[in-house]
Every structure is written in structure tokens, then in C-alpha cells.
């Protein structure tokens, strides 16, 4: 029987919940230990299709820093994190960049874009800072 213990992260209370696969239940899972309905929704989601927002950086040339912070514009499946990192790490952009600019369209066919989370002007800092 598929079953998982988890801490609910919806609010600071942090209920310790147990989620068990249950074919008879409407959602397909039985959640216990939660103190509110939001916990149940979270528990089912964590079991059926856990997703996360991925925040990381990409290389940037001629910016005042050598890395540009980026985020997925929505949650992507949790299991795809490392693959997503590989794809994002291949990208190199050139300053200037405006916040919100799409860096990767439709990341790994998730339908989610990767966007810049800050603007970065063009500026060469000291030599040692150059991205090689």
C-alpha cells in the first residue's frame, strides 16, 4: 500500500500528516493528522503530483555580475529539478537584461517559462569577475 508521512507546509502549524492511497476515496488518497482542509489538499497534491518552483542562476556576459538570477514562472514537477538545472545551466545571456525577461521558453515542455528575476545593466567589473 502506498503511504507517506509528511509535514504540512501550508501554514506555520506544520501538522504531521499521513497520506495513504485509497481507491475508494474521491481524491484517491486518505489524509490523516491534518487540522484543516488545506492540509488535505496539500497532502493529496504531494502524493499525486508534487511540484516546485525552481530558482537558480544563469551565466551572463558583460553584466556587472557574472550570474543572473532566474526562476521558473510557475511550479514544475518535483522530479524534474535536476534535469531542469542541466538545461538552465547551458544558457548564457548577455547584459543588459530586464527583470521578467524570458530566458527559456517552455522549459522541458512543461509549459513553464524561465524568467530573469532581476535587471542587470551592462558593466564590466574587475577582470577576475569575468565569466570564462
Amino acid at each position: 500500500m502506498e503511504k507517506k508521512e509528511m509535514i504540512c507546509i501550508v501554514c506555520p502549524v506544520g501538522c504531521h500528516m499521513e497520506v495513504v492511497r485509497d481507491g475508494k476515496s474521491k481524491d484517491g488518497y486518505e489524509v490523516s493528522g491534518n487540522q484543516c482542509l488545506r492540509g488535505k489538499v496539500y497532502g493529496v497534491k504531494e502524493m499525486s503530483n508534487p511540484t516546485r518552483v525552481l530558482t537558480t542562476t544563469v551565466k551572463i556576459r558583460e553584466g556587472k555580475l557574472p550570474r543572473l538570477p532566474v526562476t521558473t514562472k510557475g511550479a514544475i514537477p518535483k522530479g524534474m529539478m535536476m534535469e531542469a538545472m542541466k538545461t538552465i545551466n547551458q544558457v548564457e545571456v548577455k547584459a543588459p537584461v530586464k527583470v521578467g525577461r524570458v530566458i527559456i521558453k517552455n522549459l522541458l515542455n512543461t509549459g513553464v517559462d524561465v524568467v530573469a528575476t532581476r535587471s542587470m545593466e551592462e558593466e564590466a567589473r574587475s577582470q577576475s569577475q569575468k565569466v570564462s
Binding site: 530558482t55 538570477p69 526562476t71 527583470v99 528575476t117 532581476r118
Partner: peptide, 10 residues
Amino acid sequence: EELTGPEYAE
């Protein structure tokens, strides 16, 4: 809305 640190700062 949920922002990253640099977005919040900007």
C-alpha cells in the same frame, strides 16, 4: 504574490 529576493528588491 510570491517573489524572489531580487524581484522584491527591484
